[in-house]
């Protein structure tokens, strides 16, 4: 589990609270990226890549996970150009969002110099020439952003043919790699009948470069655990039983609202789709300090249909989470 580097105030200020209404259903909830969203506690969403106080800690955790389990990263051979394109696009996004610490300079035709001041890193490279980077380009850039990255190749459908995913919420990148977008979403309830995923697929197939989109997704996670991948189920699965027996104070400290801000980017050179997943976690005890969040999260959790709660793996404790939040505001549970 990650040790926290940020203060509670910082975590709350940057938290992308995901519920626009008291009721949550799946939808093709995409909107143009890059617009800052004000919340009662601060703001989020100004940039496609987001660096916060957890940067160093999360990058260290990612490196550690990749060392232990190399299947969290994969670039199928035909995705090499897309991997370079992703690296370049992420460097540009970083340099645009954080100009005082990140710079990308053109030295000559395909020669570039990248400086990441936060990591004390300077790297010259030739675009497309693997020998000029210390690592495969996608892994290399994934070591400099807090986002998980999946690259999708567009053939008749979109296929998840490359990625570095260390913070998966109850899925396995190693299992999904090479699968189509529709296959990947096979386990999600409701979405087939409601056309959510087919619509998303049509949208992504038409997405053009330089017009990134974003959406949010959410679940609950016990403990500040970024890596709740299927691979580690034996480690975190039992927490779903444990959490039912803890006292209220422990419950509010351990149960986190986990929000993913996902960006959808058509890469401008290779034409692949880049899917970025940035994970934020806030324990209920902090969530409850923002009154409108406390009230709304309680409503959403209480109302969420059982099949969705079951799929999200929260069916056994979401009622308690709702009551906990209501009690925290002095409401009847």
């Amino acid at each position: 589990m990650t040790a926290l580097a940020s203060s509670a105030a910082e975590l709350i200020a940057g938290f992308p609270f995901p519920f626009p209404e008291d009721r949550y259903r799946y939808s093709t909830n995409v909107e143009p990226a890059g617009r800052s969203v004000s919340t009662p506690a601060g703001q989020w969403g100004a940039a496609v890549v987001d660096i916060d106080g957890e940067y160093a800690a999360e990058l260290a955790e990612r490196a550690d996970i990749l060392r232990r389990d190399p299947t969290r990263a994969e670039v199928l051979p035909h995705m090499q150009p897309a991997a370079w394109d992703a690296a370049m696009t992420l460097m540009r996004e970083l340099a645009t969002a954080y100009p005082s610490t990140m710079t990308l300079e053109r030295l000559g035709d395909a020669r570039w110099r990248w400086t990441n001041g936060l990591l004390g890193l300077t790297q010259e490279f030739v675009y497309g020439d693997g020998g000029t980077l210390p690592e495969e380009p996608l892994r290399w850039i994934a070591g400099q952003v807090q986002e998980d990255v999946v690259l999708l190749d567009q053939r008749d459908q979109l296929y998840g043919d490359a990625g570095v995913v260390t913070f998966a919420a109850d899925w396995s990148f190693g299992f999904d790699v090479g699968m189509s977008f529709l296959e990947i979403h096979g386990p999600v309830p409701r979405v087939r009948e409601e056309g959510v995923i087919t619509r998303a697929h049509e949208f992504l197939k038409r997405l053009q470069p330089h017009q990134p989109y974003r959406r949010t997704n959410w679940t609950l996670t016990i403990g500040r655990r970024l890596d709740v991948s299927t691979e580690l189920y034996p480690e975190w699965g039992p927490d779903r039983e444990m959490i039912q027996r803890v006292d209220d104070a422990t419950f509010g400290r351990l149960v986190h609202l986990r929000v993913e801000v996902q960006h959808l980017v058509r890469l401008p050179d290779s034409g692949a789709i880049m899917f970025l997943i940035r994970t934020y976690m806030l324990p209920l005890e902090l969530l409850a300090t923002v009154e409108s969040w406390r009230r709304r999260a309680a409503e959403v959790l209480a109302e969420l249909p059982a099949d969705m709660a079951d799929y999200k793996g929260i069916i056994k404790y979401r009622d308690r989470a709702a009551s906990w939040l209501r009690a925290a505001g002095g409401e009847a549970p």
Binding site: T28, N29, V30, E31, E202, F203, Y213
Partner: peptide
């Protein structure tokens, strides 16, 4: 409106 592309509904 959100997407302005005929997808989001």
């Amino acid at each position: 409106n959100l997407c302005r592309q005929g997808v989001c509904g």
